[in-house]
């Protein structure tokens, strides 16, 4: 089964270099990738993820707002009874990683994460139940 991933930019952060590169890496790894463009809200991401029936949501965050916005995306999904895992990539200081995980984020990829690391983590998030 093909893994489906929604990659998203939430809030006002316009840095889209990383998300575009990661989207292509995931495609190269055989996944289907949906990108909804800039300036999304936690709600619009949750709605799109459910509509598109994706297996994983990937957020790209480089402005420092991850502690505010990433938990809101998890919450918006849970409010809609969805258990789709949320992963975060971008500039996240290591002290914030534990707090993000406590808020329900499944994995965090810092700057310099390798292709294998990202693809591997997403694959294992999707497959353990099977």
């Amino acid at each position: 089964m093909t893994v489906r991933v929604l990659v998203a930019k939430v809030g006002l952060d316009g840095h889209d270099r990383g998300i575009k590169v990661v989207a292509r890496i995931l495609r190269d790894a055989g996944m289907e990738v949906v990108y909804t463009g800039l300036f999304q809200t936690p709600e619009s991401v949750a709605v799109a993820a459910i509509q598109e029936d994706v297996d994983v949501v990937g957020l790209s965050m480089l402005s420092g707002a991850h502690m505010t916005l990433a938990p809101l995306v998890v919450e918006a999904l849970r409010q809609r009874d969805s258990s789709i895992p949320v992963v975060v990539g971008g500039i996240v200081p290591s002290n914030d990683v534990a707090d993000l995980k406590a808020a329900g984020v499944a994995a965090v990829f810092g700057p310099g994460a390798s292709d294998e690391e990202i693809v591997g983590a997403i694959t294992s998030l999707v497959s353990p139940a099977e």
């Binding site: 809030g11 006002l12 300036f39 809200t41 402005s63 420092g64 707002a65 502690m67 505010t68 916005l69």
Partner: peptide, 10 residues
């Protein structure tokens, strides 16, 4: 509402 978490940050 879109400014949440970003005010005065960058």
């Amino acid at each position: 509402p879109m400014s949440l978490g970003e005010v005065g940050r960058c």
